[in-house]
Amino acid sequence: MNSVTKRLRKLYADGREFVWTSQIHHVTGTDCHKCTRLRVWGAGKNSRVLQADLVSKAVLPWGCATDGSHPTPKDVRTVIDYALTHGWDPDLPRGTFLLTESEHASAFELPGFLLTDRLRDEGAPDPTPRVFRAFDENPGR
């Protein structure tokens, strides 16, 4: 199940306009998890796009269909800042810069989300153990 949010949103950071959009998906493993595919452009529609698949840390008794988690503009800014310091050059033409679980998960995390590769690759690690661990480590939930 997925729904597409076509609306482009704008975010201004360090004198530059970034445009971003998101798509809501679900990824499965031992459990079902809401996953948001975030895509960001920093130099127009033909520039190198930044992509991050963010799995929600929410653990709900009714399943992922009731998870209302969605990245905020602050979350998007955090993703942009991290990507810029880890090799994303938004001025390059075309292509995709991926923030992947396999390369970046040990160094990057948002308060409500974890990076996952499961949306792009069904053979990637099940996100459920990481989601449960993150949920258990957050006493303020």
Rank of each mutant, 00 (worst) to 15 (best):
D89Y: 03
E103D: 15
G42N: 07
L60H: 10
D31S: 10
L54R: 01
V49K: 08
V19G: 04
P139D: 12
L54W: 01
H70I: 08
Y12F: 14
T85N: 06
T5H: 13
T100S: 13
N2V: 10
R9Y: 05
Q23E: 12
R133D: 12
A107R: 11
S22I: 10
F113H: 05
P90I: 00
G112M: 13
V19L: 01
M1T: 12
P93S: 14
P139Q: 13
R37Q: 03
E137G: 10
K6G: 14
T116P: 00
H104A: 04
V79E: 00
V76N: 01
T5W: 05
P90Y: 00
F113A: 04
V76S: 01
F132K: 13
T85C: 06
K57V: 13
G123W: 08
T72A: 07
E122T: 13
K74Q: 15
K57P: 02
P139I: 10
T66K: 12
N138F: 10
P129H: 11
T30K: 12
D91P: 01
Q23G: 12
A134N: 09
R16I: 02
E109C: 09
D53L: 07
H26W: 09
D136P: 05
H33S: 06
E101Q: 13
W41N: 02
R16T: 00
G15W: 03
P73H: 11
L11N: 00
K10V: 06
G123N: 15
D31W: 11
K34V: 11
Y12P: 04
V76L: 03
A13M: 10
D81R: 02
G68E: 15
R133H: 14
L119E: 06
H26R: 14
